[in-house]
């Protein structure tokens, strides 16, 4: 057992993955899972529609996390949203400006733009000028995005990914530009700022669910239901731990430290 690190973590991972895979299996058998509506995701189409009516561009940015860091899931989730938004913008013929912090996502975003223009049968929509790498330094990136928001005055701004202090700079600049703002992040320190300033906010795991939710694919939606098993497990452990610690026992704490 000493040759296996983080045994309790491994067991937890197996349980959660097992639950997700089970729910995916059920969905493939035709038993769909019900996922509650997430206002921040539902409103994406409305925001893009607003931009179309006003004839103003849409802006999106995917935050700070590189694809090899612990925040990579947020960037991946943000790219999923970007892909959807690009497709919609191409269909509506409005420019989508993507501001980038992580340079390795530039080719990914370019490919998304190309695919969106092909799917919309609108090759002229693709303009790589709208894919703008700002900087890999936080406040240079913040300044660049602020400038884009103030000059281009988008009607919709999507802030999807991992953010730190610059979150409020983006949100306030977007507000001053008159943009409808939808934000999504798992960075707990920035959630309050987004909630206070943006029109809609995806909190924590709602961002991760965005890709599956937007696909409207029953099998992907089932994976969102599967992760709830992990939450139930956490609640059970909390209750058991509460009772045991009230009785003066460290047993569960020691087990979970393995």
């Amino acid at each position: 057992m000493a040759l296996i690190s983080h045994q309790s973590g491994l067991l937890t991972l197996i349980i959660i993955c097992g639950a997700v895979l089970f729910m995916i299996y059920r969905a493939r058998q035709g038993l769909e899972s019900e996922v509650r509506r997430v206002a921040g995701i539902d409103v994406i189409d409305e925001a893009i529609g607003r931009s179309t009516e006003m004839g103003r561009p849409v802006h999106i940015t995917n935050g700070l996390a590189t694809l090899y860091s612990s925040g990579a899931p947020q960037t991946i989730a943000g790219l999923s949203v970007l892909s959807y938004v690009a497709k919609k913008c191409a269909q509506n013929g409005i420019p989508l400006i993507t501001t980038i912090y992580v340079p390795e996502t530039i080719p990914i975003v370019m490919e998304m733009y190309r695919e969106a223009s092909v799917l919309a049968e609108s090759p002229e929509w693709f303009d790589d000028y709208n894919i703008r790498y700002m900087s890999s330094h936080r406040f240079s990136y913040a300044t660049g995005v602020q400038g884009v928001l103030q000059r281009e005055k988008p009607a919709a701004s999507f802030l999807m990914g991992s953010f730190m202090a610059e979150a409020l700079i983006f949100a306030e600049s977007g507000y001053l530009a008159g943009a409808m703002q939808v934000a999504g992040t798992a960075a707990t320190s920035q959630i309050p700022f987004f909630v206070a300033v943006c029109d809609y906010t995806l909190l924590g795991d709602e961002l991760y669910a965005a890709g599956a939710y937007l696909s409207q694919d029953a099998v992907q939606m089932a994976s969102i239901a599967g992760q709830d098993v992990g939450k139930y497990l956490a609640m059970i452990l909390l209750l058991v731990g509460l009772i045991l610690s009230a009785m003066g026992s460290d047993w569960l704490v020691n087990i979970l430290k393995l």
């Binding site: 790219l79 999923s80 970007l82 990914i108 490919e111 099998v219 992760q227």
Partner: peptide, 27 residues
């Protein structure tokens, strides 16, 4: 929030590994 975020990232990671989450490759 940390627990929920972790659950969400495990689910997203699994979808990515299984090739179900393809948004980042283009839809």
């Amino acid at each position: 929030i940390m627990i929920c975020v972790v659950m969400g990232s495990v689910s997203l990671g699994l979808r990515t590994l299984l090739g179900m989450e393809r948004g980042y490759l283009g839809r």
